[in-house]
Design a protein around this nucleic acid. Structure first.
Length: 641
RNA sequence: GCCCGGGUAGCACAAUUGGUAGUGCACCGACCUUGUAAGUCGGACAGUGCGGGUUCGAGUCCCGCCCCGGGCUCCA
């Protein structure tokens, strides 16, 4: 007989002796009753398993509890199963497909019987049913089944999507068996693992309904996706819902019109109308970018928005981007609105001869581009049909690439910090399957970008195969005040375009050479960046970006003249100042200024008029007492830096 | 493009089983002359996204279109 004991190693390096045939749950119990109770799953040599999984001995195990980082994913996956269970209770004819945990919760894609698709009001009904299953604390039970039996099983139940999944698994991964998990009367095809029972789902909520194609393929069946979120306890759920509420409050689509920054009109879906305040904001952002351009030797160009269709054949956009372009016709000539600025920049470069002495030649353009995005994907300022890129194209030699990219990384760091984003993440994307150029060329290009990242001393994430077909790239991401991540700037190498446009420069050897082109954008889209800024700051932009930095509030009509003088003096000092001359009470004017998110309010009444001062109130600090206009201007100027 | 939900005054919302479209804020006018988040009174403003249909009668029901919102692999 083999030995009756087995040994496993624990994360702290100690050994645990167990009876042979012991499971993860036994291991947890052997360590302590508290842990046994808290245990959700097991990690065997770093791989997540069910608690009920038998141990072989010799492996390193870790008990996953509600405090483990994996716990959320586990519980959400459990919740997805309970969701499917509840749906099948209510709609026995429903066909379920997949139901994974996702970043913010979980979902399940389901085909409901014809004409019985649920509405938002049905979510509560499903939730109620789910709660019943959770309080019943149904254990998750795993079993393994040969593929043929599993297919038979799901075919009998009319679960066609499961049958398809299993058949695909067999074909693509050579699976001979699949695993099923049962909770209550419900059994689902699932890789697992799962928590011990449904009772461990601390708190959940179904959040929304959406359509989703089976396997994301728009030629296939449209399913109903039920979204939900789950947490280990009520408090965490409440915090998450609170965060969503906050995000709603900060939504730039709500704040933009409220603060008179921009608005949308049906006359031009996906193209914003910028109001005076919003124009000021864009202008300030642009000035900040221009500061970087001046500092780093970029020169600004402007190229046409409308260009002959032929150009887009030459640039390759016709083949790759035609569906997203707008076209216009005039006098039998077909033109396209530019979706990108690079061809224009290449025409500028190519229209004169260049010497190696001019390189790197850095041409920047605040270029307005037009992209005919499908209607359904438009989303406020974040996904539009026209926007302004703070674009630039650097023409240089291969040797110069690293230096240029370091410079771009620095520019982005400085710029993002200035706008209040400290957490910048870099990603390097390398050669994709479909690409042009030689292997050596790619190797050198990727090495140049890696070199830039290293000499800038930056950590980065590698995305192999995620580059553009014409060259590798570095993307820049920031995290906003609500913890959401946004991709902003980009720095891409391009071997393709200089080739296509037959660009050249005369080298020191008096021969013609092909320059390398770097596309780079710092903020990306000015409009999109403005939208992200608005959400990041909750509409309360930092003083230097506030379209109106201070509002002068005369106490009574007789103070209007004095107030105008103050306003004029502050404007003279370069501040953006408004004035509220309505015959309203001070309280009212303050309220309205606060709602307009004015950083400073300057009250002028008898006392101030006499002393030649203003009473200053800031949103943050409340009443700051009296100041002379000059003092105030200096203070605000200092704060704006 | 597709699925689900929505569209009533500038904005937020209301309108029994189909039965004369309302309220608040904003706006305009008058009064008040105001001291750190809403002063008082009065007035004007939509024919219900657009087009058709059913009906004695449609914001409510039906059809088509437009726009807005949530989504459309984070793959058992």
């Amino acid at each position: 007989m083999p030995e009756t004991k087995l040994k496993v190693e624990l994360p702290d390096g100690s050994e645990l002796e167990l009876e042979s045939g012991a499971t993860g749950a036994d291991a947890a119990a052997a360590i302590g009753p508290g842990l046994a109770k808290a245990a959700l799953a097991l990690k065997v040599d770093g791989e997540l398993r069910d608690l009920s999984a038998p141990l072989a001995g010799g492996e390193t195990i870790e008990i996953v509890t509600d405090r483990s980082p994996e716990a959320l994913e586990l519980v959400r996956h459990d919740a997805a199963h309970v969701l499917a269970e509840a749906v099948l209770d209510i709609w026995p004819g429903a066909k379920i497909s997949i139901g994974p945990p996702i970043e913010s919760g979980f979902y399940y894609d389901i085909e409901f019987p014809e004409g019985e698709a649920p509405g938002p009001e049905d979510l509560e009904r499903i939730e109620e049913r789910m709660r019943e299953h959770i309080s019943a604390d149904e254990p998750f039970e795993r079993r393994e089944l040969p593929v043929a039996e599993a297919v038979e099983h799901f075919r009998e139940e009319g679960q066609d999507y499961k049958v398809e999944l299993i058949e695909d698994l067999q074909r693509d991964e050579g699976a001979s068996t699949v695993t099923l998990y049962r909770n209550g009367a419900f059994e689902d095809l699932c890789r697992g693992p799962h928590g011990p029972s449904t009772g461990r789902i601390g708190a959940f909520k179904l959040t929304s309904l959406a359509g989703a194609y089976w396997r994301g393929d728009e030629t296939r069946q449209m399913l109903t996706r039920v979204y939900g979120t789950a947490f280990l306890d009520r408090k965490a759920l409440a915090a998450h819902l609170e965060m969503l509420e906050q995000a709603k409050e900060r939504d730039h689509r709500k704040l933009g019109p409220e603060l008179d920054l921009f608005r949308f009109r049906p006359e031009s879906p996906g193209m914003p109308f910028w109001l005076p305040n919003g124009s000021v904001l864009l202008e300030l952002m642009q000035e900040e970018v221009r500061g970087q351009l001046r500092k780093r030797g970029y020169r600004e160009i402007r190229t046409p928005e409308v260009l002959d269709e032929e150009l887009w054949h030459r640039s390759g956009h016709w083949d790759n981007y035609k569906e997203n372009m707008f076209f216009v016709e005039s006098e039998d000539r077909r033109f396209a609105l530019k979706p990108m600025n690079c061809p224009g920049a290449c025409l500028v470069f190519g229209s004169t001869r260049h010497s190696y002495r001019e390189l790197p030649l850095r041409l920047a353009e605040f270029g307005k581009v037009f992209r005919n995005e499908r209607e359904g994907v438009l989303h406020g300022l974040l996904r539009v049909r026209s926007f302004t890129q703070d674009d630039a194209h650097v023409y240089c030699t291969e040797d110069q690439v690293t230096g240029e990219c370091v410079d771009i990384i620095e520019a982005i760091d400085e710029l993002y910090a200035r706008f209040g984003f400290d957490d910048v993440r870099l990603e390097l994307s390398t050669r994709p399957q479909k690409s042009i150029g030689s292997a050596e060329q790619w190797e050198r290009a990727e090495a140049a970008l890696r070199g830039a990242l290293e000499s800038a001393g930056r950590d980065y994430q590698l995305n192999p195969g995620d580059g553009a077909f014409y060259g590798p790239k570095i993307d820049f991401h920031v995290t906003d005040a609500l913890g959401r991540s946004w991709q902003l700037g980009t720095c891409q190498l391009d071997f393709f375009m200089p080739e296509r446009f037959e660009l050249g420069y005369t080298g020191a050897d008096n021969a013609e050479h092909r320059p390398v082109m770097i596309h780079r954008a710092l903020l990306g889209s000015m409009e999109r960046f403005a939208g992200i800024l608005i959400e990041h700051h909750g509409g309360r932009l930092p003083l230097w970006l506030a379209p109106v930095q201070a509002t002068v509030l005369p106490v009574a009509d007789r103070h209007n003249d004095a107030a105008s003088e103050i306003a004029a003096e502050l404007r003279e000092a370069g501040l953006r100042v408004g004035i509220d001359e309505r015959s309203e009470s001070v309280g009212r004017k303050i309220r309205d200024a606060e709602l307009a998110k004015a950083p400073y309010m300057l009250v002028v009444g008898d006392r101030e008029q006499e002393a030649g001062v203003v009473s200053v109130r800031s949103h943050e600090g409340g009443d700051l007492g009296q100041m002379k206009p000059g003092e105030l201007a200096a203070r605000l100027a200092a704060e704006s830096r």
